[in-house]
C-alpha cells in the first residue's frame, strides 16, 4: 500500500468515525423525545392523563370500591407563595368525578405568574388518574397578597389495579416567566421570544 492510498483511506475512515460521533451526539438529543414517549406510554414518571368531561361521565362508577386520594402541595425554592390542599386526604369511588379546591396566597409582595406541575404516585396508578379540569393546565397570574381558589376535577378509572388503595396527587408551583409560553406537558421546548 503506498502512502497516498493509505492516507486517503485514513481520511475516509476518520470522516466516517466523525460522522458516527455526530450521530451519537444527535442520539443524545433523540433520547429526550424517546424518554417522553416512553413515560407517556407507561406513565412511570407520574404524568397524569387528561379526559374530557364527556369521557369521564361515560365511566361506570364502582361504588363498591373505595380509593384514598392524598394531596401533597409544595412550592419551588425561592417562590414566596403559600399553597394548600383542601384536605390531607379524601376517599373517593372509582368512576365518580370529584371536585376539590386548592388555595394559593401570593406573599411575595409583587404580582407574579405561577405554573403548577402535577405528579401522581405510585407510578403504576398515574395512567388511571385523570383530570377533567385543573388549574395546572394554565399559568396562574396572582396579584400580590391575593388569595386564589384553584379548582380541580378528577376521576379515578375503575380499571385501577386492585392492589392500589392509595393514590397521591402532588403539585409543585414554579414561577413562570411572564413571557414564556404554557410549557406544561411539553419538555425541552425552546423559548418563543
Amino acid at each position: 500500500m503506498t502512502d497516498t492510498i493509505r492516507s486517503s483511506a485514513n481520511r475516509r475512515l476518520a470522516y466516517k468515525l466523525l460522522g458516527l460521533t455526530g450521530l451519537m451526539f444527535g442520539f443524545g438529543y433523540a433520547l429526550v423525545p424517546l424518554y417522553n414517549v416512553f413515560c407517556e406510554v407507561t406513565g412511570i414518571n407520574g404524568k397524569t392523563g387528561e379526559l374530557s368531561a364527556a369521557q369521564a361521565d361515560a365511566m361506570q362508577p364502582d361504588l363498591s370500591r373505595e380509593v384514598t386520594v392524598e394531596f401533597v402541595t409544595s412550592v419551588s425554592a425561592g417562590l414566596a407563595w403559600q399553597f394548600s390542599a383542601p384536605a390531607q386526604k379524601i376517599v373517593v369511588h372509582p368512576g365518580v368525578v370529584t371536585a376539590v379546591e386548592f388555595e394559593v396566597v401570593n406573599n411575595a409582595g409583587r404580582d407574579m405568574v405561577g405554573q403548577a406541575i402535577p405528579s401522581v404516585a405510585p407510578s403504576t396508578a398515574a395512567r388511571y388518574f385523570s383530570k377533567t379540569e385543573c388549574f395546572c393546565f394554565n399559568r396562574q397570574p396572582l396579584v400580590a397578597g391575593k388569595v386564589s381558589k384553584l379548582p380541580v376535577r378528577f376521576i379515578v378509572d375503575p380499571k385501577l389495579p386492585a392492589d392500589v388503595q392509595t393514590v397521591t396527587l402532588g403539585y409543585t408551583f414554579f414561577e413562570a416567566l411572564p413571557d414564556a409560553p404554557d410549557t406544561n406537558q411539553k419538555r425541552g421546548s425552546l423559548p418563543s421570544t
Partner: peptide, 21 residues
C-alpha cells in the same frame, strides 16, 4: 442560560431524564 427546560420540571422537563442520559 438559554431558557430551555430539558431537566426543569417547571418547564415540563424531568431531572430524572438527565440521569438516564
Amino acid at each position: 442560560f438559554f431558557g430551555t427546560s430539558f431537566f426543569s420540571a417547571a418547564g415540563g422537563g424531568d431531572p430524572v431524564m438527565f440521569q438516564h442520559i
